[in-house]
Structure formats: structure tokens, C-alpha cells
Design a protein around this nucleic acid. Structure first.
Lengths: 220, 220
DNA sequence: AGGTGTGAACACTTTCACAGCA
DNA sequence: TGCTGTGAAAGTGTTCACACCT
């Protein structure tokens, strides 16, 4: 029972969890795969397959217990704990993330902010003080940070990513439009706004060539 | 010659273009699929397949002319024109996007900003003035906007998306963590930061279950 | 030789369909 | 009856391998 899990499955699990946590009509006792699928924009079979990769959580004829399934999903995704994030880059994107309450609410705590700009270093960000990126590798181990958010210009992204990894980080959310070359034990997820807009431009330019159905991206 | 094109292909085309436009070592006359692949983190065969879906741009024994290929890619992606964006939501994320110079540089022009908050409406954003979302459907047609960026709280995203579509928009970049239900001729791409962090949490929780490579084989 | 373009093989993902249990 | 769990089938995307051109 240790099959490889695809990225799209993980994304859907995250979506199922969000649906359960913000279920519109009151407190349901149980949900069926069909009901979840309808809200998630997928099929009942897909929901069952996804869940069955991690165990048998449902009752035949009834569905899944909502409380039970919610707990299982949180456990599967690794959300039964909090995650400590180091934010690298105190620019606009960094600021937007820092003030995005949903992160903290969902267990992702920003525990340090770093920047290259001497004008920003030393400034207070909420309860934190912006540190110099030069101190990254030295300071990181003491923070017990689990992940880093890289919100820096493309030309310095690779270099800073390496520092972050040297500091012990194994998970990176990268906003710079470059492919980071890192040891394979480091997990990197990319968010590339220009690429998203370019995909949109493609779609609008070739309305006939749209492959998938509407509602689901991909990826980042 | 009008096969459906997968999302991953489009994303790679965008990546090839970025690589060509910021080629590190001087001006190459030609590139081979292998050289592009190496930088894009894919295989030579994949590069050739992707490109061959749109024509035969290469010369056997030589490779692809860089200038030529760059132009073709821009044309394929629909970037030989500028795209007019309506920004809906003048919060932190909206602000970050508004000041993200790369967008304009790549031909995506924000031509209007809307918000729900009366305190924000009327304020100047660069050369623009923040408008009330109530005026969306009325004002949009006159803007000849092509796409909308939805950077609003989840509870109002669906409603505003519908207004935007009513205003004639056919492409939406959605930052709200909800699946928008819209007519299928509308193309929606989602950016969900919490979902990305949750995927990262999954990866770190199950280091054994990482399926595909997300970055690239070891190096650096 | 060097490198493209592409059918065929392969791998992965989603959907189908149904046995089995509450 | 209703709905799960899951092998098998169908569908998609990626890699291989080689004919072909320069």
C-alpha cells in the first residue's frame, strides 16, 4: 500500500478537504462520492479512486462520514500539524502573502522574513524583523522552518534556493519564473503568473483547441 | 491539423519561449531540441513533439532558428498582440499584480481596477481610478478588456465572475479558492496558494510517495 | 554526421462496470 | 436499495526509435 501518488490526486484531495470544511448547507452527517464530485468538478469514480489509495473510509450504502473523512484528509495531507515558513523576498508578493490571513488559519506560519535590500533589512513586519538574506543559511536551522517561500527576482532565485536548501529546507514554493535546479529530495512547487496569463492568451487565441473541460487547472 | 492541445503542452511552449528570450550565452543562431530540453527540464523528443503540433519549424541536421522559433512561439501563444486586463479586487494580491512590471513588459496591460470597498473606490492607482464593482457589467464593454484577474474573497468570487462574463470577458485568472461555474466557452485558470502549500505539506509528509519529478534530476 | 518529424510502444490517469456489503 | 471499492477498459500524454533530410 505505498503506491506513488500523482500530483493531480493530491490537488483533488486538497479540494475535497476545502469542500468539506466549508460545506454550505448545515452539518451533514455523511457525504457520498457523487456529492463530493459534483462540488469538486470531477466524477464519483474519481473521488472513490483518490480516497481508496489511502484506505477504505466509506460505508457501503451510506457514504463517508463527514467528520471522519475530514480528519482523514487532513491527516493524509499532513495538516494535523503546523508548518513553519521562511519568507524570502520582502517585495509586493511577499507582503501580499504575509498579510494573507488564510495561510495562518490553515496552519502555515511565517516565522521569518528575509530580503536583499539594505533599506528593507531591519524593518518590522508585524512581530518580525526583516533579516538580511546573507544570514539565511546561518539563521535557518535555528528557526526549525519546514518550507520556504521564494518571492524574489528571477536572477537571484537559484542562488537563494541553494542557500535555503543548505539551511535544511526541503520544500519550496517558488514565485520566480525560473526552473530551480536542486537535489531531488527537495520538493519545489512553482507559481508563475506570466505563464498562467500566457496559457489564457493561448486559450483565447485558439478557442477550438481547448482540451480539458472548464473548471480545472492544472497546475501551477 | 487541428488536434486538441493539452495544458501541459501549452505550459511548456511558454517555458520554451522564456528560455529563448533570455538565452544566457550571447546570440545563438540556432537551437536544437536537446539544448532547449536541457534548459526546460524535459526531453528532446518532448520538445519536438510539442513544436510539431503546430508545424515544422526546424531544419534537419541544424536545429531551429532562434529568431524564427521565437516568433513562431509568440504567434502560437497569441502574444503578437497586447492583452487588456480588468483587475477585480484592489487588495494585497491585486496591488502586487498591479505593480508587477513583468506583466506589462510581456504585453498584459491592466486597463481598469474594480473593488467592492467604498473606501477604495475613487482612489488613484497609478493612472487609473478604482471603480465600484457595481459598475462592472456596464463599464467592461467599453474597455475592450480581454481577460479579468479575480483577486477577491472566495464568497463573492462566483458572483463577480458572472458579472465579468456578462461584460463580455472570456478569460479569467482566478485567485479565489473556489471552482467557478461558468459557461464552458469561458477559460478559467486558477492560482491557489493554500493548495500549493498543502501539496508541499503532502510531499514533505510522504517523501516516499513523490510521483513524477517536479524539478529535475540532481545537480548543483 | 547531426538533428528533425513522427508512428508505434509504453506509462500513466481516468472512466466503466460490477461484485459486495450495510 | 444505495453506495463503496476495485479490477479491467479506455483514454491521454510521454518516450522510443528510426526514416529522412541537409
Amino acid at each position: 500500500m505505498s503506491r506513488k501518488i500523482s500530483d493531480s490526486t493530491v490537488r483533488r484531495l486538497s479540494r475535497y478537504l476545502r469542500i468539506l470544511e466549508s460545506w454550505p448547507d448545515g452539518d451533514r452527517d455523511t457525504v457520498s462520492s457523487g456529492q463530493l464530485a459534483e462540488r469538486a468538478g470531477t466524477t464519483a469514480a474519481q473521488v472513490r479512486k483518490d480516497l481508496s489509495l489511502f484506505g477504505s473510509f466509506g460505508k457501503r450504502g451510506t457514504g463517508y462520514g463527514t467528520v471522519d473523512l475530514t480528519r482523514h484528509l487532513r491527516e493524509i495531507l499532513g495538516l494535523e500539524r503546523t508548518w513553519r515558513l521562511a519568507l524570502v523576498g520582502a517585495g509586493r508578493i511577499g507582503a501580499a502573502l504575509f498579510e494573507y490571513g488564510a495561510l495562518r488559519r490553515r496552519g502555515f506560519h511565517i516565522v521569518a522574513v528575509f530580503d536583499q535590500d539594505p533599506a528593507k533589512v531591519g524593518r518590522a513586519w508585524g512581530p518580525l524583523v526583516v533579516r538580511d538574506v546573507g544570514t539565511l543559511a546561518g539563521v535557518l536551522p535555528g528557526l526549525s522552518a519546514d518550507m520556504a517561500v521564494l518571492a524574489v527576482p528571477a536572477p537571484v532565485a537559484q542562488e537563494l534556493a541553494e542557500l535555503v536548501v543548505a539551511g535544511g529546507i526541503r520544500g519550496i514554493l517558488n514565485f520566480a519564473p525560473v526552473r530551480l535546479r536542486l537535489p531531488e529530495e527537495v520538493s519545489v512547487h512553482n507559481v508563475n503568473l506570466v505563464a498562467e496569463l500566457e496559457s489564457l492568451a493561448f486559450d483565447l487565441t485558439h478557442p477550438d483547441r481547448l482540451a480539458g473541460e472548464n473548471g480545472q487547472p492544472v497546475r501551477a
